[in-house]
Design a protein around this nucleic acid. Sequence first.
DNA 1: ATTACATTTGTCACAATCTGTCAAGTCAAA
DNA 2: TTTGACTTGACAGATTGTGACAAATGTAAT
Lengths: 95, 95
Amino acid sequence: MREFGTTIRALREKKGLLLRQVAAELDIDTALLSKVERGERSIKKEQVMRIAVIIGAETKDLLVLWLSAKINDVLENEDYAEEALLVTLKKIKKR
Amino acid sequence: MREFGTTIRALREKKGLLLRQVAAELDIDTALLSKVERGERSIKKEQVMRIAVIIGAETKDLLVLWLSAKINDVLENEDYAEEALLVTLKKIKKR
DNA sequence: ATTACATTTGTCACAATCTGTCAAGTCAAA
DNA sequence: TTTGACTTGACAGATTGTGACAAATGTAAT
């Protein structure tokens, strides 16, 4: 579940941007963005939205991938991940 | 999404147990267990499993509710909660 | 009304996790 | 073999989570 990272990396490269350039716009260290792209670290929602603008991605698409990665962190190594997702989905639909 | 808390409270009361008694067995403060039952705080997986034994619940059922509550915390106030859940569900099925 | 007891609430300290940096490392192209 | 892009590990500071304690609230019996 590193799809958020691989997605922003692909779009960044497609735009011919360097880690250094994007990191500077986000006002973070290059090393941190590198880790984010490899799924080793996560970032804040507000930074995701800024990245979307910088690399020309749909904000919604990135936010969904970013949220999904966070859910996945919670489910990591859990036996009943699927059951819990289904229960949550049912409740979410009601709100 | 306070279902984990309301469930353990219902079972505890059905068994005629006091907060104080269950808290003592879990080796935590009564006040903390009170907050847990009302969804204001969460507890560790290992504690969930101990509660299941104490109040006579299915460990699996409680773990699913507990995990679901954690997922829900991540999704709180998120616009794309449902989309993210669906994306995650698809990936989970593959693992 | 007073007591007794269960539960709740607010606040605090400590622990654990998260966020970002820095310096040193790898790797590939020139 | 130097240069530039990226990666890695270790660290400090900030943020959040966990649990305890004391005081408050609620409630039922006396």
